[in-house]
Design a protein around this nucleic acid. Structure first.
Length: 150
DNA sequence: GCCAACGTTGGC
DNA sequence: GCCAACGTTGGC
């Protein structure tokens, strides 16, 4: 079982939205490195939900991968802002996963706290200038993040 | 294959 | 709203 961190702007889709929906398809990722991480996810993996572009940016909850290797449906939808004209159902470019709500943390773990707790090598989200929206989290680091809650 | 121009991300 | 970092595009 692997751990991941996935970013979303709460004004677009928040942990509260996921708590309400229970499941969602994590669509709209259009970065190849992030997509490659999405492709390597397996059912049962867990992912931290990170709120970006908010004050403060923070890890706000936990989710579980419930379906792996789905074609992102928005790539085929001309009305979607994520539409990709070079992608066809026969040769889709963008894959993603379905995630299941696990929990919203009682208190968010802010980027400041993450910086105090981890080096950029341990946790990529504390790297200055980091823009990757999907990234792996080592199991030992994941355990320490969960320990910060208690 | 290089690289300048351009667009996006995301913390502040 | 600013702007640094960084990814993508497209002309050559």
């Amino acid at each position: 079982m692997n751990y991941w961190l996935m970013k979303s702007e709460p004004s677009v889709y928040s942990i509260a939205d996921l708590a309400r929906d229970k499941h969602t398809i994590w669509d709209g990722v259009r970065n190849y490195q992030a997509r490659n991480f999405l492709r390597s996810m397996a059912v049962g993996d867990q992912a931290f939900f990170y709120h970006s572009n908010t004050k403060p940016p923070a890890i706000v909850g936990l989710m579980q991968i419930s379906e792996a290797n789905l074609d992102d449906p928005t790539q085929f939808d001309p009305k979607s802002k994520y539409y990709d004209a070079k992608s066809t159902p026969d040769h889709p470019r963008w894959q993603t996963v379905k995630v299941k709500f696990v929990q919203e943390f009682p208190t968010p773990i802010s980027l400041d706290v993450l910086r105090q707790s981890f080096t950029p090598e341990q946790l990529w989200v504390v790297r200055p200038g980091n823009r990757l929206s999907v990234m792996p989290v080592a199991e030992a680091v994941a355990r320490q993040i969960l320990n910060l809650l208690s």
